[in-house]
């Protein structure tokens, strides 16, 4: 995991272990296709496609991670947002300046992507 003081280069490939889908006792995949990734609207799809162009390898790994284990934390990279009004929402830091925010739907095994694109504009800290 990159440290806070070590900014991730946008093109840097994530070194993620991609988990295998869960299996039954007989060894059959419970969810052979993993989780279904759903974009909330066209704006999300456009943001995602842009992100795929900018950092394709990272986007592929993010896609695989969310399909296989969207609520498995990667410290500092894939985590549940802390702000209480976003309860149940997760962040995936695809690159140093790219983010994906999503929630899961357990019942239908869907990952609903609310946002995919550049890091939200940061307020100037300290105030100038």
């Amino acid at each position: 995991m990159p440290g806070i003081d070590e900014p991730i280069e946008p093109e840097q490939t994530l070194d993620l272990e991609i988990p295998h889908p869960a299996r039954t006792e007989q060894g059959e995949d419970i969810t052979p296709h993993g989780w279904l990734l759903v974009a909330q609207n066209k704006k999300v799809i456009k943001g995602w496609n842009d992100l795929c162009l900018q950092i394709p390898e990272n986007a592929k790994r993010c896609y695989l991670w969310l399909r296989n284990d969207p609520t498995r934390r990667i410290p500092g990279r894939c985590y549940e947002l802390k702000y209480k009004h976003y309860a149940g929402a997760w962040a995936f830091e695809v690159g140093s300046g790219q983010r994906v925010y999503y929630k899961i739907r357990e019942g239908t095994r869907e990952v609903l992507i609310y946002y995919a694109g550049p890091h939200p504009a940061k307020a100037p800290y300290p105030p100038t």
Binding site: A39, Q40, N41, I45, W48, N49, A59, Y63, L112
Partner: peptide
């Protein structure tokens, strides 16, 4: 909300 599948990269 106009949900649709997220494209596979």
């Amino acid at each position: 909300a106009e949900e649709s599948p997220l494209p596979n990269p």
